[in-house]
């Protein structure tokens, strides 16, 4: 008993607290920087609490870049990717989880292999296709390309969730008079709600944080998502730290606020299922 208590404390001090600091530190810096002037940011030694806290950065960021457009675009990318992942991933994962067909196993492995390619390897090729099709500055193209990269991972996740639901429940529904589609929609999907939420959140975050394809495919200011918009504070000669941090903080706050609003609904569904 004594030993375990002692060990717990030691691991908290040696591991927990340093980890916490490492994780939280960037946020603290981000918050603090957003209230500093550029001169104070580059001061050595750095100050932790701004000497002359100012809200000027917030006004400037709003004026320098079309922040509202950026937010809207990021949101659209998140929603678009979630939509694509759900519409394409759920049926694919369902088929992989429920049916035994020739090539099922190789296909699952193939999906995994596609995950091994870094996006940067193909971005140039995809760029040329997009140019050839005249689809630059199109958010739908960015969402589709990004989704095609996270789809494989999401399918793997969903196959796991669907396989965990006993097929007898669907079979019972079909005997009771449901079609297979009806049984899937009324039985397997609600029962794998936690999995669907996890994948949905993952897809949204992936879209919200999308950077590489937006940077490559979008040159029009109004079409850029936050990630690329903020990236423009980093120029070859100077990094506008105060603006960059302010924008990042705003992006984080909005993302967190978004999840807070839907979180209640999502977890309530999750709890309802897991209690059963």
């Amino acid at each position: 008993m004594q030993r375990i208590q002692w060990f717990k404390w030691l691991s908290l001090v040696l591991y927990g607290i340093p980890m916490l600091l490492v994780l939280v530190f960037p946020f603290i810096v981000m918050v603090s920087t957003s209230f500093k002037t550029l001169e104070e940011v580059s001061q050595i030694p750095p100050t932790f609490i701004p000497r002359n806290p100012t809200l000027e950065n917030y006004r400037e960021v709003w004026n320098i870049i079309p922040l509202a457009d950026h937010f809207r675009n990021s949101f659209l990318l998140g929603v678009g990717e979630t939509f694509l992942i759900m519409v394409l991933g759920v049926p694919a994962a369902y088929a992989l989880a429920r049916f035994r067909f020739a090539g099922r196993q190789p296909y699952l492995i193939f999906l995994l292999v596609t995950q091994m390619f870094p996006a940067i390897v193909v971005v140039l090729g995809v760029f040329r296709v997009v140019v050839a099709l005249g689809l630059l500055n199109n958010l739908a193209v960015v969402a589709t390309t990004a989704a095609s990269f996270s789809l494989a991972f999401c399918i793997w996740l969903l196959v796991g969730y669907f396989s965990a639901i006993p097929p007898e429940i669907e079979e019972a529904a079909m005997m009771d008079g449901d079609s297979r589609l009806g049984a899937m929609i009324k039985m397997t999907l609600p029962l794998s709600w936690p999995g669907l939420v996890a994948v949905g959140v993952f897809a949204f975050m992936d879209g919200w944080n999308e950077f590489l394809f937006s940077l490559t495919f979008i040159s029009n200011d109004e079409m850029m998502p936050l990630t690329v918009g903020l990236f423009r504070f980093i120029s070859r000669f100077q990094i506008q730290w105060h603006h960059l941090m302010t924008g990042s903080l705003l992006a984080t706050i909005v993302a967190v606020a978004l999840f807070m609003t839907v979180q209640d609904k999502l977890t309530r569904g999750m709890l309802a299922i897991s209690e059963k």
């Binding site: 079979e171 019972a172 079609s179 039985m187 609600p190 029962l191 299922i273």
Partner: peptide, 17 residues
């Protein structure tokens, strides 16, 4: 669903939700 048969499963297969 077109066979008009009812089935009882070994593990009951009740709808948990």
């Amino acid at each position: 669903r077109h066979r008009d048969i009812a089935m009882v499963f070994q593990n009951y297969a009740l709808y948990p939700h």
